[in-house]
Simulated scan of single mutants.
Amino acid sequence: MTELWNWRIDRVPPVEVYPALAEALGRVVMPLAVADPARLPTYAVICDVWQAPGEFGTVVDCYGVPERLPELPSVAALARLLDRGCVLRDDTLDAGRHLLVAPDGTIRPVHFEVTETDDGEVLRGQRLCTLAHPACRGWSRCHRSKWAPDSVVPARAAA
Rank of each mutant, 00 (worst) to 15 (best):
G105R: 00
G105D: 00
G105W: 00
T106Q: 03
T106W: 01
T106D: 02
T106K: 00
T106V: 08
T106R: 05
I107F: 07
R108I: 08
R108M: 08
P109H: 08
P109A: 15
P109Y: 07
V110D: 04
V110F: 03
H111G: 04
H111Q: 02
H111Y: 05
H111D: 05
H111N: 05
H111S: 08
F112I: 06
E113C: 03
E113M: 05
E113V: 06
V114L: 04
T115C: 08
T115Q: 10
T115A: 10
T115R: 04
E116K: 01
E116Y: 01
E116F: 03
E116N: 05
T117E: 01
T117I: 04
T117N: 00
T117H: 01
D118T: 04
D118I: 06
D118K: 02
D118V: 12
D119H: 07
G120Q: 07
G120K: 03
G120T: 10
E121W: 05
L123G: 02
L123N: 00
L123S: 01
L123D: 01
L123Q: 00
R124C: 09
R124V: 08
G125D: 09
G125K: 03
G125F: 06
G125A: 10
G125C: 04
Q126W: 02
Q126K: 02
Q126Y: 01
Q126L: 09
Q126M: 13
R127M: 13
R127D: 06
R127G: 08
R127N: 04
R127W: 11
R127A: 06
L128I: 12
L128C: 11
L128P: 14
L128K: 06
C129K: 03
C129A: 10
C129S: 15
T130H: 01
T130Q: 03
L131H: 02
L131M: 06
L131E: 08
A132M: 14
A132K: 09
A132Y: 10
A132V: 11
H133L: 13
H133A: 15
H133K: 10
P134K: 06
A135T: 05
A135D: 07
A135W: 06
C136I: 12
R137S: 10
R137T: 11
R137Q: 09
R137M: 14
G138P: 08
G138D: 11
G138T: 11
G138C: 14
G138K: 05
W139E: 11
W139H: 14
W139I: 15
W139N: 15
W139P: 13
W139R: 15
S140V: 13
S140Q: 07
S140H: 05
S140M: 09
S140T: 11
S140N: 05
R141I: 13
C142R: 03
C142A: 14
C142N: 09
H143A: 10
R144G: 13
S145L: 12
S145Q: 13
S145T: 12
K146C: 14
W147F: 08
W147V: 12
A148L: 11
A148K: 10
A148S: 12
P149E: 06
P149M: 07
P149Y: 03
D150R: 00
D150T: 04
D150F: 06
D150A: 06
S151E: 08
S151A: 15
S151L: 12
S151P: 07
V152W: 09
V152G: 11
V152T: 12
V152H: 09
V153R: 00
V153I: 14
V153Y: 00
P154N: 09
P154G: 14
P154E: 14
P154K: 12
A155P: 10
